[in-house]
Simulated assay, not measured.
Amino acid sequence: MNLLAIETATESCSVALLCGERIIARSELAPRRHAELLLPMCDAVLAEAGLARSALDGVAVGRGPGAFTGVRLAIAAAQGIALALDIAVVPVSSLAALALQAPPDDAAILAVIDARMGEIYAGTFRRGSDGLVTALGAESVGRAAELELPRAPAWNVIGSGWATYAPALRERLPAAPRWADAACHPQAADVAVLAAPLLRAGQGVPPEQALPVYLRDKVALTLAEQQAGRAAAKSPA
């Protein structure tokens, strides 16, 4: 099976090609350069594998949540490639792809991406016997201090949300994280790993049905909301 994967929901722009059991990947931390890098990365992994686009069996894509522009770019690119080749698209949660990078132990996994505006995108996962991750609940967006977690005795935490909101997130956990890494971003290689069994099972969708997941419909705070936030921050408790 030849599966091309795309993930641009965060600052990291990444592409991967699952070719049989081999994964060829490109990844770069490049805020605001995703549109410039994405298609050349696709061409590069195909060239390294010696494959034409026509040899692809499907396209996997990180569907978000994440930066609006990045999520839209990934979905549009996946749709365009799949439509041209008449192949299926497999949308994968960007939070699930992030969670797959956590240590392969029995701790529950909290994947958190900084959503700006004082909020985080969050998803909770458990690693299965197959090494993949399954969701423990619905993904959410909101304030770290208000995050609701399912019960679990131990947690691993991964993602940029930990860098910004670690103190608030610690208050939501039953104990200190067994492991935490704030420097990780969702990667196309992990999108490919999660998408491969779905494609094999015939669970890909037509390109037009591959839709982004934003979790919220607001890009930024208004000026009035920013001023109110600053005033609240200065007010005595």
Rank of each mutant, 00 (worst) to 15 (best):
C19M: 14
L98R: 08
E119L: 06
T8L: 12
V92F: 11
A188T: 11
L149F: 00
E36S: 12
A166P: 01
A168W: 07
T8G: 08
I87H: 06
V45I: 01
A108M: 00
T124F: 14
N156E: 09
I109T: 04
R32K: 03
V15R: 02
I24C: 03
W162A: 07
A183I: 09
L110K: 06
C19W: 15
A96Q: 05
A224H: 01
A210M: 00
R26E: 15
Q79R: 09
E208Y: 15
M117A: 08
E171N: 02
R53C: 09
E139T: 11
C13E: 07
A60K: 00
A196R: 13
P207F: 06
R151Y: 14
P91I: 10
E36C: 09
E208S: 15
P153G: 14
G204I: 05
R230N: 03
S94N: 02
A166F: 08
G137W: 01
D181Y: 08
R127A: 04
L85E: 10
G204V: 09
A232Y: 07
A122P: 08
A232I: 06
V205I: 11
L56A: 12
V205G: 02
G202C: 01
E7Q: 00
L17D: 11
R172L: 10
S27G: 15
P167K: 09
T222N: 06
P207I: 10
G142D: 09
D57C: 14
G202N: 04
A152S: 01
